[in-house]
Write a protein that binds this DNA or RNA. Structure first.
Lengths: 223, 223
DNA sequence: TCATGATTTTTGTTATAACAAAATTATGAA
DNA sequence: TTCATAATTTTGTTATAACAAAAATCATGA
């Protein structure tokens, strides 16, 4: 991917997406520094778009400033994980409940297909694919409420947890977590029962939180 | 206020705060355009900080892009008001519930003092002061949970509604709304009853929503 | 008067250079 | 070695100029 590939002419957006993707795939270890000029050179853009992208990610919490002139990929931080989880429960629960009644048969079919893909990916230990489809599963439901600002706020939360905890996901994903919750959510959609869908999604978020927390704690102990 | 007054050396932050303040006090009518160069000249800064501030406000939803090169102060939009209100209920409810047990006697005293100020301001028709202290009342409670990212997300929501609906506040504030809810919240804090505090705050948010909606609808009819 | 096309102006974006401040490295003494 | 201090490099920020594209204005026709 290079700057010329981007449909939007804005290099700032290109830089933003690029860094975000690197973060989401865990390309940078926690503590890794991201100086403007390095990022600019890496992406073949000027300092202005690189700076803008970095600042935006700092603002969203995906990167952190540890000094007046140093931004790094955040370290594991259980307090942050807890805070993000609480916000996720509130906002993703809201999106779920508001959108649940709008689920069509097509949506249900899409979710079922996604769940099959997820299960298959987990069986074949393709955790990256599983995580990708897991995200798509969630957002397929959240998009139903048609609240754009809510959606983008939720996305920022996913980015935040993804950036800090991505290196934990492999061991985290092994347990086939989420299958049961996802099926319960689909059932709630079919039954036109918003609060049931919400409960299922909240359960999914809480399960994920527990596993991530455990994995993070073990990681911390080992080091 | 001029650029040299700012403690943070960053002109971007100065520009951001300045525009935000203008928006919050309703200095710009909905539809007002904010071109980078005009803002830059007005604030005596270069194009870069002005651009950065505007983009940030667009990202937060306080300003909107209506064309590839035109950002304006958003028009009244009932759908947006609803969306923001739902998010406020979720996030401010969360902050309230998580922080309620940490309220000390000092906090309660501060809230009581603020409430007296609010009532006095309303009696004397100083609505600007009343709104300011109302915000301080809310955030004094929200700050108790000590979740910084949650706090800044909530602040962005207040900015968003403030920017679009500020011109409605005078007629909106006349009804002495909120007094009862605020007192109920304080009572819940004293009783160490988080869900009671949350209920009071949610009630406050909902009351405000109803009034703003009504005022907006009347305004729309009249025009 | 109104639409439509051409022209002019305005505007957002970006690369770049300069500056000040922070971060890093080197140096020195205990 | 260890710690403080000085020298050096790196870095964030900002103003500016140039460019392309959008918006506004004007002109022209019916």
């Amino acid at each position: 991917m290079s700057a010329s590939d981007l449909q939007s002419g804005r290099l700032s957006d290109f830089a933003y997406s690029s860094i975000k993707e690197q973060l989401a795939r865990g390309a940078y270890k926690p503590g890794h520094k991201l100086p403007i000029r390095s990022v600019a050179e890496m992406l073949n853009v000027g300092a202005t778009p690189a700076r803008e992208a970095i600042n935006r990610l700092v603002f969203e919490g995906a990167l952190v400033m540890v000094g007046p002139k140093t931004v790094i990929v955040p370290h594991l931080d259980l307090a942050a994980l807890y805070e993000v989880t609480q916000m996720r429960l509130a906002l993703e629960g809201l999106a779920t409940e508001k959108g649940a009644l709008r689920a069509t048969n097509d949506i249900v079919d899409k979710l079922l297909a996604l769940q099959e893909k997820i299960t298959l990916s987990l069986d074949e230990k393709r955790y990256g694919d599983a995580l990708h489809d897991n995200k798509e599963f969630h957002f397929t439901i959240y998009r139903l409420c048609e609240m754009s600002h809510l959606l983008s706020t939720i996305e920022a939360l996913w980015l935040r947890v993804g950036a800090s905890f991505h290196d934990l996901y492999p061991e985290f994903a092994e347990a086939k977590y989420g299958v049961h919750n996802h099926l319960a959510a689909i059932e709630g959609l079919v039954d036109k029962d918003p609060s049931a869908v919400r409960a299922a999604m909240e359960n999914d978020i809480r399960d994920g939180y527990r596993r991530l927390k455990k994995a993070a704690q073990e990681r911390l102990k080992r080091q």
